[in-house]
Structures are given as structure tokens and as C-alpha cells.
Design a protein around this nucleic acid. Structure first.
Length: 463
RNA sequence: GGCGGCGUGGCCGAGUGGUUAGGCAGGGGCCUGCAAAGCCCCGUACUCCGGUUCGAAUCCGGACGCCGCCUCCA
């Protein structure tokens, strides 16, 4: 049984899948109008970890994440750059996947695009109009939030409170400031589609309703996104499905912010770092580890100091991999299942401990702490020449792999000259010529290696 | 104004009514020819003020500070 904080319940709840043993998960993906930043990276990492873990735990996970390729911001950018909307969307979607690939985030099982679902959106809007929960104005078609009795469920407060504080700009003919655009009437020069209620283009909140229901079916298990999508985006999706009497997401989960000092990282504050900038100067695995070491709902601080911290911690994990020559356990599209592993007694104990933590609202920091404790134990066992050490180290590698974190066992390729220096150093050490041995070590260090002496002689790895 | 969250040791960051989070950094020791890696030991922290309790950082009340959402936003 897995448990997760559900925004519609306001509490951590048991996740009982619609279909036993299967999980249908929908994550609201990017609007492709600019480069992804660290916040997007965290979102992707959090749900990638969840997906991998639930798969590991035995669920057959169907993971859908959309790409919004139709939006005001894309149109604005296309205008500004004298490009087509399609070009802008294609450019930034490419950048999105490139960044996620580097982070080791597995591709979703399906990545629906808004522009491919306009027909379905039109049908849905038409039905909302027929049911009188939507109305037409000169601007387009709006959803009448007052028609949904429990509007505000995800926001955690009733409609009156939301309205009282609404900072929404007044748009002509809207019945309530909270009513949202289902359809935006065509403006010359902008992309538009023909529809019974007039030419135009869909508003943002409809695409996810159509695509999630279309690909995962009614009453799918989990709908995820960043905290900011809880309201109004997810609320508005819910409202549409509710108005049509369609069973929608059973549970709603949201990941927390990346903070810059005291502020949320955001486009509008301009305090963001793009993923490509981060990944140009840091091991992508360090960011994954940083994300894993805080709870997914808490804010995290990403700074040179916290990244350096994560990189040193990562070096310890790689050290374990080197000592025990562990194989690679994780890959971009490589998933592991616990029942496909034959667990040693040591390994099973660790697996159970980690599973208890991760099954309960994805306690990744607890799991990482348990894995680090086990790491110390594995080394200590090895120091004592206890052969359970290898089993434990292997289990640690498998479990880190289950979270999408791969370890490096050592230098993949040692060039000929370096190999010669290693041999020369080992020879010098055998004849106890310490001056020569130190000289060869200096040479190797100058070539960028970290030099370690082990039972089998000099070993190299990259700093 | 409404709703939600946060305030932990040098730093990051979990958690539980009373028994070690974990990592990084720092100190001591072991190992090593010297290193590196690794192991062992060391910090007695929890914004403040009250209250409940045998006992609270953990529960309740209040204060202060901070953040987020209520508008596009991961």
C-alpha cells in the first residue's frame, strides 16, 4: 500500500488504484515557450523518482505528461521573434527533453500535445455550453464556476473566499472574476480553429482534462504538478470534469518549490537558473541527489553550497561503487522491479526499511539517510572481511538505482600513458622506491586522476 | 482579507512525546611508506513566551519572523 498527500483530501491518504496493481499518473508538463529552469527540473525529478519507485514496488505504472504547445506566451514569443508558433514550440520542446535526458528522467509513456487535441476540446466545450455551465461572450467562452457546488476543493476554501481575494483583472462580460476562458475568440494573425461557437483557440485549462481522460480513462489514479497548479489550474480541470459528471483524478499531488534565498524561483522574479546552465557545470546526478535529500513537498534551496554538498555526498556513493565494483543499476529508461532481484538477507532488510519510508508519502530523505547508514555498514563489514559486505553494497546500488540514481564504478577508460604510469608506480611500490612511486602519482594527478591504492594496486578515477 | 506552509546544531536537511536521523564541513584516533579511500569516536540543536505532561524541539495557546497560493507560473 502506498500513501501520498492528496490535495483534495488535505491529508496523506492510502492510494487505492482504480485497477489493482496498476497506476495511471498524469503530470502537467511544460508550456514550451522558454528554456526549462531548475524548478522544472525538480518537478520532473520528483515525479520520475515516484514513477520509478512505484514501478520498483510492483505497480504497472502508466505515466502521461503533456506538452502545452498552444498558449499566449508562445504566441507572444513567436510575434517577437518573427517566427511561427510551431517553431517556438518545437525549439523549446527539444530543449525540454534534452535537459530531462541529462537529468536521467525517463520519458513518459505518452506525451500528448495540446494542438493534437483541439477537436476533443471543442467537443468538450460544446457539451459544457449545452449543460449551461459555460457561456459565450464577445471574447470567447467562459466556464461558470458558480455552477460547480464544490468549486474551491483543491484551493481548500469556498468560492466566496476566493472571490473576496480575487486579484483577477476584470474582463468584460465575465459573470464572476473567477470564471475562466475555455475558448478565446480568434484574433487576426493568431492560430485559430473553427468551432460551433466561433473561431478561436482553447484556453489552458481544458487540454489536460481531455488528454488525461483520453489516455488514462475516467477515474484515473493520480494527477500531479507543481504547487502553483493546485489552484487555479487543477481546480479548473476538476470543475470541467465535475460539470460533465465525469469521474476525474482520484488523487492530486503537488511538488514544492525551488527557492533562491527567500524567494520562489520564477520567471517573473527573473531569479532563475536554466537547467542547461546547471548541467554544464555540475554532475546531473548531484541535482537528483539534492532533490532526493529533501521531502518533495518542501521547498529546496539550490545554491553553489548545497550543490557542492550534494556532489561530495555523491562522491561517497561512487566510492562504494568503486570498492565493490558495482554494475550500473539505473538508466534513462531502465526500470528495476524489486521482485526481479534476488535479495540477500542484508539486502532484504534494507529494502524493507527503505520501502516503508518511500511508500509513506515518498520519504526520500529518510530513504537516503538509511542508504547512507547502510553504506557505512557495508564498508565496515568489508574492512572486517565479512562477505556479507558485497551483498549489502549491491542492495544499496539496486535501491539507489530504483530512485534513478546511477553510480560510477571507476574510470571507464584509462589512456595508454596513464596505464603505463600506473604500472610503473606499482612496480616502484613493490621495490619500496617511495620517491619514484610518489613521482608517478604526481604525474597521474597532473593528468586529472584521483589515485587510490587498494589491495589490487593503484586505482584511478576522475575527480 | 482568506487559505496553506515554514522557523532544527557551522551549513544543508529529516523526524518522533522520553532511546543516533543522514549528509557536508570541523576535531581526535585507526589503517597507509606517505597519501587517497574507508572505519571508529566527538556536536548534546530544535525562533520566543506561556500551558498540558513525570517528561516537549515533538501536543495546546499566544507572539515574532519568513515563504507560498488566491493572476500567467513547475
Amino acid at each position: 500500500m502506498i500513501r501520498l498527500f492528496d490535495a483534495s483530501a488535505g491529508a496523506v491518504v492510502d492510494i487505492v488504484p482504480r485497477d489493482e496493481g496498476r497506476l495511471g499518473v498524469y503530470v502537467c508538463g511544460p508550456t514550451v515557450y522558454d528554456l526549462p529552469h531548475l524548478g522544472h527540473g525538480r518537478l520532473a525529478l520528483v515525479w520520475d523518482v515516484a514513477r520509478r519507485w512505484w514501478t520498483f514496488a510492483g505497480y504497472d505504472v502508466r505515466f502521461v505528461s503533456n506538452v502545452t504547445d498552444l498558449d499566449d506566451k508562445i504566441i507572444e514569443r513567436a510575434d517577437r521573434e518573427k517566427a511561427t508558433e510551431g517553431d517556438i514550440a518545437a525549439t523549446y520542446e527539444t530543449a525540454w527533453w534534452a535537459a530531462l535526458d541529462l537529468l536521467g528522467v525517463a520519458r513518459p509513456d505518452a506525451t500528448p500535445h495540446a494542438t493534437a487535441y483541439v477537436r476533443e476540446m471543442i467537443d468538450l466545450i460544446e457539451e459544457l455550453l449545452e449543460r449551461d455551465v459555460a457561456y459565450s461572450t464577445d471574447d470567447g467562452v467562459y466556464f461558470d464556476v458558480a455552477k460547480v457546488p464544490d468549486y474551491g476543493l483543491l484551493a481548500g476554501q469556498p468560492l466566496e473566499n476566493l472571490r473576496a481575494g480575487a486579484r483577477v483583472e476584470v474582463v468584460a462580460d465575465k459573470r464572476s472574476p473567477l470564471d475562466f476562458a475555455l475558448w478565446k475568440a480568434a484574433i487576426f494573425g493568431e492560430p485559430s480553429w473553427a468551432a460551433p461557437f466561433g473561431p478561436g483557440r482553447p484556453g489552458w485549462h481544458t487540454e489536460c482534462v481531455v488528454m488525461s481522460l483520453g489516455l488514462l480513462g475516467e477515474g484515473f489514479d493520480l494527477h500531479c504538478g507543481g504547487q502553483d497548479l493546485r489552484f487555479p489550474h487543477h481546480e479548473n480541470e476538476r470543475a470541467q470534469a465535475a460539470a460533465l459528471g465525469l469521474p476525474f483524478a482520484r488523487h492530486w499531488a503537488h511538488s514544492g518549490w525551488v527557492m533562491v534565498g527567500e524567494d520562489k524561483m520564477s520567471k517573473s522574479l527573473g531569479n532563475y537558473t536554466t537547467l542547461s546552465d546547471l548541467l554544464a557545470s555540475h554532475d546531473p546526478r548531484a541535482y537528483r541527489l539534492l532533490v532526493l535529500r529533501s521531502h518533495y513537498r518542501q521547498p529546496i534551496e539550490v545554491s553553489p553550497a548545497t550543490l557542492a554538498d550534494a556532489e561530495r555526498a555523491l562522491a561517497r556513493l561512487d566510492g562504494l561503487s568503486r570498492r565493490f565494483s558495482l554494475p550500473a543499476f539505473a538508466g534513462p529508461s531502465r526500470f528495476t522491479r524489486a521482485d526481479a532481484i534476488s535479495w540477500s538477507e542484508e539486502g532484504e532488510e534494507l529494502r524493507a526499511r527503505v520501502a516503508a519510508l518511500l511508500d509513506d508519502d515518498l520519504d526520500t530523505p529518510g530513504a537516503v539517510a538509511a542508504l547512507f547508514e547502510a553504506l557505512g555498514r557495508a564498508h565496515a563489514l568489508a574492512d572486517a572481511e565479512d562477505d556479507r559486505a558485497g551483498d549489502l553494497a549491491n542492495a544499496i546500488g539496486v535501491l539507489l538505482g530504483a530512485l534513478g540514481l546511477s553510480l560510477r564504478a571507476g574510470a571507464a577508460e584509462v589512456d595508454q600513458e596513464s596505464a603505463r604510469l600506473v604500472a610503473a608506480r606499482d612496480a616502484a611500490r613493490t621495490r619500496r622506491d617511495w620517491a619514484a612511486a610518489d613521482h608517478y602519482r604526481d604525474e597521474l594527478v597532473a593528468r586529472g586522476w584521483v589515485v587510490e591504492d587498494g589491495p589490487t594496486g593503484t586505482r584511478l578515477h576522475r575527480a
